[in-house]
Design a protein around this nucleic acid. Structure first.
Lengths: 139, 139
DNA sequence: TCACAAAGTAAGTCTGCTCTTACTTTAGCA
DNA sequence: TGCTAAAGTAAGAGCAGACTTACTTTGTGA
């Protein structure tokens, strides 16, 4: 199983891969504000579990499993962010930080309920939209 | 600083202390579904940081610091539970489990916002206050 | 083309949190 | 009063996730 920390690294790699063509160890380290060796061991665990691939001295690539897992984590992150920011009025930076800490505690089922709730809030008259990932903010 | 895990143990000790006059290591272990030695080392960390006191072969006692910290954690837990269960309609068991995982990610400030939100939800017409029916949250 | 900076790797340490196995103390009851 | 079961303690191991320090590889530009 993927630990919360490992999922954080995976999410970071995913977001970096959306705005860069390649992702390196030191990029991930910089983004997460940890050292390169720490990141390296995290990537080692992700590789062992089949979420990423990386050749010696090469770039980091998400596997299909890694990508879908990362998308799921990020989707949950986005939904919690929406709730904290749009509904509770928490400032964007705080909402992002707290969404990051909470995103691993929410099941897919509860996330779906939260999406429904948010859609009702923004369209109380019955018209709803499908909720999806909208990558934009860092984490 | 108190890790999320340590806070979980503290919360368990707090809740046990509400329904029993004394709290022992094995009670905590049973409640958290871990072994006694694991619990013992967790209590060792809490003791080192001044959250609990325990004499050799004695019962576990919360310090003032420990009690107030535990109350804060539990308050957050309860608020998240209320949202998941009462607003989203998540079943009680799932809501409790997920509140447990998310409770460490929410700041006191955001928790206060969530309390306000829930109070508005239960009294949407604005007539809530004055009568004094509002559950006065500590902070 | 080759020197050097940037990126990546290796080795070793520390803490937190989990376990098992084995020992000691406490407390209840026969 | 003494035995025994329950509770607590000790020692030792393993993994995750963080660090530092030191080494190797890659790639770029003078």
């Amino acid at each position: 199983m993927l630990s919360a920390r490992s999922a954080d690294y995976l999410e970071t790699i995913y977001l970096l891969s959306l705005r860069n063509d390649t992702v390196g160890v030191s990029q991930v380290a910089a983004e997460r504000d940890v050292t390169v060796p720490t990141t390296r061991s995290a990537i080692g665990r992700l590789r062992k579990d089949g979420y990423v691939r990386q050749e010696r001295y090469g770039k980091i690539l998400l596997t299909e499993l890694g990508r879908s897992r990362a998308e799921s984590v990020y989707r949950t992150h986005s939904v919690i962010f929406r709730f904290l920011h749009d509904v509770l009025g928490v400032d964007a930076e705080t909402a992002d930080t707290e969404a990051c800490k909470m995103e691993h505690g929410l099941s897919e089922r509860t996330r779906a309920r939260l999406v429904e709730f948010l859609d009702e809030q923004s369209a109380p008259d019955g018209t709803s939209e499908a909720g999806g990932a909208a990558p934009a903010s860092g984490q």
